[in-house]
Simulated scan of single mutants.
Amino acid sequence: MHNQPIGIFDSGFGGLTVFKSIIGQLPGYDYLYLGDNARAPYGNRSFKTIHEYTWECVQWMFTQGCPLVVLACNTASAKALRTIQQQDLKNADPTKRVLGVIRPTAEIIGNYTKSKQIGVLGTKGTVQSGSYLIEIQNFFPDVKVYQQACPLWVPLIENGEYDQPGADYFVKLYLDEVMAQSPAIDTILLACTHYPIIKDKIEAQLPAHVKVIGQGDIVAKSLVDYLHRHPEMETRLSKNGTNQFYTTTDDTADFDHHASLFFSQPVKSTFISANDLVTCK
């Protein structure tokens, strides 16, 4: 197959912040982005449903020629990646690979903190999974992690309400809750790829010494390293410099408008229905 792009998946728009960083680190490759906007947000759904939706999307991306898919979504990485890697790929196509965003972040996040205390902000699903608690503990056993679910942030961002004055209340609400767990927190991890859109608002509500860390550059650098270590995969990827965008919402004009804000350049998407994703199983 001539066109073998790197697949980038998210439940909505947030993965575009990671996609933007990946292109910055790996220009010239072909990419295919899929946002499952029609079924977003994933954050409050069950493990079973998130795995089902994510695996449907991954399989569809395989049919489009992607030998490598990055789950640029913390909720999908927390609730679906392990099953996909350990079970689904073996039955579907063991030559394909699916990567996530949690492990690359956990591998280095402890390097940012001096107090050894980190706050992790994410969706309800990511927080409930405990994935960051487990992974960070593996790499930095001396670091204490405090989690905070921010269930209203993704809807505010997805609906374009994040820059309204009323959004400041909900930004402050969750930040106050995580900082109340430990005033010694000196590093905040944005464990949802949507949250960099409101990074300025988050920083404005925190003490000046608290560092706010997004995942885009971390995941992009990890992918560069992965391809260096796996030339058998790197040589399979096509390099024509193309970007394709797909969304499961039929309002592609609305998707393109919001996606352009996340991606920092114009986006032109194609509609793929969720029902068509199911037929790829």
Rank of each mutant, 00 (worst) to 15 (best):
W55S: 00
C57A: 15
V58P: 02
W60C: 01
W60E: 01
W60H: 10
M61G: 02
T63N: 11
Q64H: 11
Q64W: 08
C66I: 12
P67T: 12
L68R: 05
V69P: 01
V70F: 06
L71S: 05
L71W: 05
L71Q: 06
A72W: 00
A72Y: 03
A72Q: 03
N74R: 03
N74F: 05
A78S: 14
K79L: 15
T83F: 15
T83W: 13
T83Y: 14
Q85W: 06
Q86A: 11
Q86M: 11
Q87Y: 06
D88E: 14
D88P: 00
D88I: 01
D88N: 11
L89D: 04
K90A: 12
N91V: 14
A92Y: 10
T95R: 08
T95E: 14
T95M: 03
K96D: 05
K96G: 03
V98M: 06
L99Q: 07
L99D: 05
G100T: 05
V101W: 05
I102A: 10
R103Q: 15
P104E: 13
T105V: 13
E107G: 05
G110Q: 09
G110F: 08
N111L: 15
Y112D: 01
Y112H: 12
Y112C: 01
K114G: 05
S115Q: 12
K116R: 14
K116F: 04
K116S: 13
G119M: 12
V120I: 14
L121T: 01
G122V: 11
G122W: 14
T123C: 04
K124V: 12
G125K: 08
G125E: 07
T126S: 11
T126P: 02
T126Y: 08
V127F: 02
Q128L: 14
S129D: 06
S129T: 02
S129P: 01
G130N: 10
S131R: 07
S131W: 02
I134Q: 11
E135A: 15
E135D: 12
I136N: 01
I136Q: 09
N138G: 07
P141I: 08
D142T: 14
D142P: 00
V143F: 04
V143M: 05
V143P: 01
K144Q: 13
K144S: 09
V145N: 03
V145W: 08
V145R: 06
Y146Q: 03
